[in-house]
Amino acid sequence: MKFPFSVAVAIGIGLITLAGYFLNIPVLQTLRMALIEWATTLAAVALLVGIANLFTIHWNKLTSGKVGGLYSAILIVSLVLTLGVVGWFGPTHTYSKWIFNNVQLPVEGSLLALLAVILVVAGVRLLRLRSSMLSIIFIITAMVILLATGPLFGISVPGLTELRSWIAQVPAMAGARGLLLGIGLGIVAAGLRVLIGSDRPYRG
């Protein structure tokens, strides 16, 4: 089949939604909103399917006795307990918040905190492996911004804050604006390929 139904769906739905951005026709706006509402609901269903899949994968690992089954058991127990507590009492109940505050936040916060060490190691390695002009510009910019971001033991280095402001508002902003425009152009190109059917990422 050269032109399957799914391609027609993607192109038709996409064009209606896109037209809603540029044409202020009430019927079109209503249709666009309905399509987006269904899409967002569908995204939520996809999230649940993902969680079901997660459960299945780890359940299979647990029951098949593979290496790492203990970890799967831990995951399933914590998932089921959380489902039970949050599902029964509601996500804003004291018990649910207790789980959130004492499991979710410490673990995620600690994972991010690890980066404070890992990134220094990365910076050191960069200097160790390669000392090109660009990597030196990169690392010097990073050091200047870091020094100017914190309080620096209360010492005021003349011109440091002004230098930070200038980097933020002139060269770094220029680079970021170039990147944003590049991203924008890339999105338009990739999106249009979907809308003319030349890219079909939904093909199974």
Partner: peptide, 20 residues
């Protein structure tokens, strides 16, 4: 926060000088 950032910069600076 300031102490941590300073230490990070110091470590990178020392490493950079050492390697150069």
């Amino acid at each position: 926060f300031g102490v941590g950032l300073f230490m990070a910069v110091l470590l990178m600076l020392v490493a950079g000088l050492m390697y150069s």
